[in-house]
Amino acid sequence: MLVDIQNLRIAFESRSGIFEAVRGVSLHIGTEKLGIVGESGSGKSLTARALMRLLPTNARVTADRMAFDGIDILNADEKAMLRIRGKRAGFILQDPKYSLNPVMTIGRQVTEAWKTHKGGGRKEAREAVIDLLAQVRIRDPHRVYDLYPHEVSGGMGQRIMIAMMLAPDPQLLIADEPTSALDATVQAEILRLMEDLVSRRGMGLLLISHDLPLVSHFCDRVAVMYAGRIVEELSAGSLAQAQHPYTRGLLNCLPSLIHPKSRLPVLNRDEAWLQS
């Protein structure tokens, strides 16, 4: 098992008291594609960040167990985390615009990522990077190598981020809303690319998104989060059989192109969902 989280809790202390944002999440990831779906504030991103220990310092994290490939994340020192973060687990964020250094060429950035983890000479690195760029299906990798981030589109930027994350051959890829800043046509391409690479390399994928139908198309399993808990976990193929009223509500309140609804059903949030 690649990731094993049991009873994860994340709390933030503020002047007005303690606010628990994640309240007992348990999940495990193998070499599979797991999607975490939830609305803003459901704690889905915090869960992923806790796994990489990327939370702000005022967050209080507790768990019965939180392990990455057998390494205890809760008690690992910062040196051990450096070996995991970016090396054995890659992290892709929503907007590539803010993740790439604007004054460095794309080639140099990817090369640097590659050399930090693999070492080796400049010429060797360049070839490897061109190969990586080709792997994320950039059509003209030699040209893109010398471009600056502002000279490429959002979709291309996200491909480059993926290439950077793949450089050290990680075992797990965490993608936090990787396509919500992209157009629908590009979004499908990027997700298909990620799906393909993850399957071919035998990696695990943790895809975090607010878009339930989208996630269920590209993942094997889906965990639905509400107010800091996983309210339902189901295989992506059986979304139609979802039991929890929240999951069903999320699906029902979407407007539909093929099945027009005169009025959209509104989600009535039940107090009981907070407990179960």
């Binding site: 629908a184 139908p213 699906l251 192109l257």
Partner: peptide, 14 residues
């Protein structure tokens, strides 16, 4: 047609 296909594709709940 392309936009429609993408939209329809996502709506089909498996």
């Amino acid at each position: 047609a392309e936009l429609r296909a993408l939209s329809v594709d996502l709506e089909e709940v498996p």
